[in-house]
Design a protein around this nucleic acid. Sequence first.
DNA 1: CGCCAGGGCCATA
DNA 2: TATGGCCATGGC
Length: 212
Amino acid sequence: MNISLSEIYKTLLDRYGEPRWWPANTPYEVIVGAILTQNTAWSNVEKAIAGFDELSPEFVTETDGAELARRIRPAGFYNQKAEYLKAVTAWFSEYDFDVSAVRRQPLQKVRAQLLSTKGVGPETADSILLYAFGFPTFVSDAYTIRLCSRYPLPAGKGYSSVKAYFEDNLPADAVIFNNFHALIVINGKEHCRSKPLCDSCPLGENCRRCGV
DNA sequence: CGCCAGGGCCATA
DNA sequence: TATGGCCATGGC
C-alpha cells in the first residue's frame, strides 16, 4: 500500500513527540557534531566532545591541529576531522562567529559556501544549515535513505533526489524539517541493520522491515 | 573475532 | 558521473 510522507510524519510524532532536536548546547556545537559524526556512532562523538573544557570557535581556531586531533580521537578519522573543523571554523569566522549574521544570508548562498568548505559535503552542510542556523533545508542521511527503501517511497537514489523528494512533499518549514529528520534518526536507531526485526514497530503494518 | 556507525575526499576510467 | 580505497575509534 502507499503511504504519504505526512502520514509517516504524524505516526512518528505520535510515537515519539516533538524532538526539538540535535544533541548540542550551542549552534557551534552543532557544527562540530556534524563533522565528528561523519560515518561515526554518536556515542563516540559524545566522548570526543567531552574532551573539551571549552568548545568554542575561538578555541578551535587557536588550538594546534595535532592537539585538536588528539582531543577528538574517540570520534575516529581524527586527522581528517581536525582539518575539517579548522576549515568550517574558518568559514564561520568570516561572519565573526555571529549566528544571526549567517541567518540573514540567503540559504543557497550559505549552502554553496559550506559545500565549498573542505570536509563539508551535502549531509553535513544541510545539518549545519538546519540545526545550527534554522534554514528550511531537509537533511537526508543513511537513515532517511533506508526508510525510503523499506516502504518503498519513490524518492530516487542519490542524496539530492531524496532531499528533493521530502522538500517537494512537505511544507517548506524548518520546524517540520527539523522534527521529521530527527524522528527518522530516532526511529532508525530502533530499526538499524543490526536489529532488523523489532517487537513493537512504531510504524506498525507499514513497516516493511519488520514484516508485521 | 568481524561488522558497523547520522560521510567526504581523492584518484581513476 | 560513478565507483572504490581510504580514513579510525568504540560498541556489540
